[in-house]
Nucleic acid binder design. Structure first.
Lengths: 136, 136
DNA sequence: CCAATCCTTCTAGTTACTGGAAAGCCTAGT
DNA sequence: ACTAGGCTTTCCAGTAACTAGAAGGATTGG
């Protein structure tokens, strides 16, 4: 099948498939006589794997690692678990950071009367004009 | 004061200050006879404002908007509030997405025994080989 | 046989910086 | 006066992960 079909079947845009090939995440596809890239169902499955892993927030590099482990019949599940655990911790850190932002901002938004007066606790806080710091 | 001093006082790296100037977030600094950029305390305060707003996750473009409002004595707090509220919603969306990832991944990590057997539910899920989807 | 649709490669833009190179300026010490 | 150092300047390139668009070749349906 051609790249467009593989794209539809996997959910990965054709442009992105070419991009993945260019950065070495997937092997260069074999070519038809026309020069068009040719894909089979295994390729589509690999693309779906990538799609899911990316959807879980793994970086392209990490997806490469997972892919290698997936394709290695002798892999140790410990490696996969370690990789995933580390990623889980990174996600947790990101969530914590966002929550900090969120709470500070919500507090400020609540305190802003939001009318046509120029007075605004949000700006006051950003300018460092008040002592209240919710998130250090 | 020179850029290095402003950087130290504001917490914004010198490189970043130049970058902010280059993208028009801040006005081009006046120059000393040497050609060095010159800053005063108001500039440092502006940089701190930027620093805080970025720390709350506002994009550079949004910081530009907030900065304009901050410097506009006739602004309406409603504008500031609207901008911040929208940003708050975006943060919430990001947190929700991350939580979805997090929960799926945690579930998988828990189920992976993590030893030297090649069996791994994480890979199985990524490959789409099981029916359990925690996050749609 | 031609138009529509697909494919190819290449370049460049996105976000928000960060690193490094080559060179100019300024001050303190010898 | 000279020099070493530490500051500054500009510009170029790289990061992550695509995405848009241009110019042109291939294929297919009617």
């Amino acid at each position: 099948m051609q790249i467009g079909t593989a794209a539809r079947k996997s959910g990965v845009p054709a442009k992105t498939i070419r991009y993945y090939e260019s950065v070495g995440l997937i092997a260069a596809a074999r070519r038809e006589s026309s020069g068009y890239r040719a894909y089979d169902d295994l390729d589509v499955q690999t693309l779906r794997f990538i799609q899911r892993a990316r959807g879980l927030g793994f970086s392209v590099r990490h997806v490469g690692d997972l892919l290698a482990l997936w394709q290695d019949r002798g892999r140790h599940s410990a490696q996969v678990k370690a990789l995933s655990k580390k990623h889980l911790e990174e996600i947790d850190a990101k969530i914590a950071a966002l929550r900090g932002m969120r709470d500070t901002l919500e507090h400020l938004v609540e305190r802003c009367h939001g009318d046509d007066r120029p007075d605004c606790p949000i700006l006051a806080d950003l300018a460092g004009l008040n002592g209240v710091e919710i998130v250090k």
